[in-house]
């Protein structure tokens, strides 16, 4: 065992792993995190604690992760390359490990201009760091954990035992380079991969075929990304505006139909669409898990953590296995 985390244990057991996502609040109040942790607890093997996602200031990933851990939910702390140089990153990783965190997902991070897709002011004038990139951060983590060395070469008295993950967008441009992109992350030391949300299952499967041919599915655990659709509008937005995501027309039509069934009743429209969204999600989970080489799913119910329970149950992934530490 590299870290002994619950996530690692489930993956190593060969059963499909389930991760979810917990977005920390723009708040100093721990209760929001506690509340969400309680909603998710028991329905996933670990939950990602995002790191100022969409380039908006939120409670730090490490702090929120520790709060979640105390609530009995295993966190996957996220770390972006945007805000810290390698000194801060390594210091934070040591601290995180010391506080009991066992999983870390490495990301480039949304650019500071993103500002929640323009919904919030954010800090577009901030200076980004990008001292190292995702691959390099993965490499740094691996070196710290496995060699007990800092990036600069200095020794660590106690190495941080972290299960190292990285994100991967299977279907963004340039599409034929994406497998190489994954290869690099695996070579750098990624133990697990969480992919960008998959709607176009056919496209994902064809990328996975290449991955299998490269043998990458055996060197890392790929968790297929599932973004729970809430409305037709959201699907359309994802299709048109989110990099590497394309949503088949049929799915959008299904959502539209659900919306139309409600007529002018807005509340009902919301309910019907949410119900359809959960249905779609469950179907997607099955399709993704059926794809050879996939070792689990990463379910993102953005600002809708309460849906996870229903989804995981409907997908037949409940209860989550309890694999004791060796």
């Amino acid at each position: 065992m590299k870290s002994g985390s619950n996530l690692e244990r489930v993956i190593m057991s060969g059963r499909p792993a389930v991760t979810a996502e917990l977005g920390p609040p723009m708040s100093a109040d721990p209760h929001e995190v506690m509340k969400k942790a309680n909603i998710l607890r028991g329905f996933c093997d670990a939950a990602n604690i995002t790191d100022c996602q969409t380039a908006v200031v939120r409670m730090s990933s490490i702090a929120a992760a520790v709060i979640a851990l105390r609530e009995g939910l295993e966190p996957v702390m996220q770390m972006t390359c945007r805000d810290r140089n390698r000194i801060a990153m390594q210091a934070d990783l040591l601290g995180a490990a010391a506080l009991g965190l066992k999983n870390c997902l490495c990301l480039a991070g949304d650019h500071q201009k993103f500002s929640a897709a323009g919904k919030l002011k954010g800090h577009p004038g901030a200076k980004n760091v990008y001292d190292v990139d995702t691959c390099q951060l993965v490499g740094i983590l691996k070196k710290m954990r496995d060699e007990g060395l800092q990036e600069g070469g200095d020794k660590l008295e106690a190495a941080p035992k972290l299960f190292v993950g990285a994100s991967w967008t299977p279907m963004a441009d340039p599409i034929d380079f994406r497998p190489v992109n994954l290869l690099k992350k695996v070579n750098a030391g990624a133990d697990f991969i969480q992919t960008q949300g998959i709607y176009d299952v056919e496209g994902f499967r064809s990328q996975m075929e290449k991955i299998r041919n490269m043998g990458l599915h055996e060197r890392t655990a790929i968790l297929g990304g599932i973004i729970v659709p809430k409305s037709a509008m959201m699907l359309k937005y994802m299709d048109s505006s989110v990099a590497g995501v394309s949503v088949p027309k049929s799915l959008i039509n299904r959502m539209n139909k659900a919306k139309e069934e409600a007529g002018d009743d807005k509340k009902k429209a919301k309910e019907l669409q949410e119900a359809e969204g959960i249905k779609i999600t469950v179907e997607l989970i099955h399709q993704v898990l059926e794809t050879p080489g996939v070792r689990g799913v990463h379910i993102q119910a953005i600002e809708w953590e309460s849906a996870i329970e229903k989804i995981v149950k409907a997908a037949g992934l409940y209860p989550r296995p309890d694999i004791p530490e060796v």
């Binding site: 480039a108 650019h111 980004n128 990139d133 963004a172 340039p174 989110v242």
Partner: peptide, 21 residues
């Protein structure tokens, strides 16, 4: 590169364009 990545691209590439704009 908006993020000065040495091992890009990141997941933000959209139709050959940067996620920034």
């Amino acid at each position: 590169c908006s993020k000065t990545l040495m091992n890009g691209p990141c997941g933000g590439t959209n139709k050959g364009k940067c996620e920034v704009s």
